[in-house]
Every structure is written in structure tokens, then in C-alpha cells.
């Protein structure tokens, strides 16, 4: 048997519902298997740890062929809100946690949660704009220090 994975660092860079869930599921799943996990939020992915935005994340209906609707239709005002509502209902039915609950839970599992300094500077965010679970706004160098000895997954 190959060596088991003992540590993962997962980067979440996208600010849509479907862009954030996979990274959260992988981090939570890693902890459930006893694997050390760190989450690093960068660029639009930072919405998932932003006090005002984390409960309002939406599904992308434009530029998303997986939605199986034409781009012009996806661009109609309200389409993204509607798709988000539909998906949120499905997610709830499957008994998946919402993004805020998921981030809180992952933090409780002992996973590290970090924000990207370059992105925070770009958007003008400070620690006060981010949720309490965020352990720090760190540089890319610090990220590599934290990720040392483990696998890195970019989403």
C-alpha cells in the first residue's frame, strides 16, 4: 500500500457557491480521516470568510457550461439568485451545511483557516472584515511554511 496522506493545504480561489464547496468538503473530509488540514482563501474565494458575504454566495449562471443554460439566459437579472435558491434547497435536502456553518465546523475540527495578504490588500479587507475563524492574513511565503511537508490542492 502507498504511504497515507498525512497533511493537506487547500487553496480556495473562487467566489461562487460551486467554487467554494469542493474545497470545504475536502478539508472537512481530510480532518474526518485524521489528516491535518489547512485552508487558504485567496482572491474571490475570500468571500467565503468575509463577514458580510459568506452567507450570500451564489451559483455562477454565466460562463458556466455545466449549468446547461445558454449564456444569454444565464445573464437575465435574477437568474443567478434563482439557480442559487434551487441549489441551496438541494444542498439542504442532502443535509449539507451552509457555507457559514461549514466554515465554523471545519474550524472546530482543528483545521487552520487563513486569508491571503495580497488579496486582502487588493480588496481593502482587514482582519475585522473577516470572520472570527480566520487565524491570520498571511503572505504566500508564510503559506508555504504552513503547508510544508504536505500536499497542496488548488481549487
Amino acid at each position: 500500500m502507498s504511504d497515507p496522506i498525512e497533511k493537506v493545504s487547500i487553496i480556495i480561489s473562487k467566489g461562487s457557491l460551486e467554487g467554494v464547496y469542493p474545497g470545504l468538503i475536502m478539508a472537512n473530509g481530510a480532518r474526518a480521516e485524521g489528516i491535518e488540514a489547512n485552508l487558504f482563501f485567496t482572491f474571490f474565494g475570500m468571500d467565503a470568510i468575509h463577514r458580510k458575504h459568506w452567507s450570500k454566495m451564489k451559483v455562477a449562471t454565466v460562463g458556466n457550461p455545466g449549468m446547461h443554460i445558454p449564456t444569454v439566459v444565464g445573464g437575465i437579472p435574477g437568474m443567478s439568485a434563482m439557480a442559487t435558491k434551487m441549489m441551496s434547497k438541494k444542498i439542504e435536502k442532502l443535509d449539507f451545511p451552509s457555507i457559514p456553518e461549514f466554515v465554523e465546523m471545519i474550524s472546530d475540527t482543528g483545521a487552520g483557516i487563513y486569508a491571503c495578504l495580497a488579496s486582502a490588500d487588493l480588496f481593502g479587507y482587514t482582519k475585522d472584515d473577516l470572520v472570527d475563524q480566520v487565524q491570520g492574513i498571511i503572505t504566500v511565503g508564510e503559506f508555504y511554511d504552513i503547508a510544508a511537508g504536505g500536499q497542496i490542492i488548488f481549487t
Binding site: R31, A32, E33, G34, M105, D108, T109, G110
Partner: peptide
């Protein structure tokens, strides 16, 4: 709680 669960059973 989830926090306590991970203290009780650190390996998952």
C-alpha cells in the same frame, strides 16, 4: 461538540 469530538478522537 465538534471541537470536543476531535479532542476525544484526534484521528477522526
Amino acid at each position: 461538540t465538534v471541537k470536543e469530538l476531535y479532542q476525544l478522537f484526534p484521528k477522526g
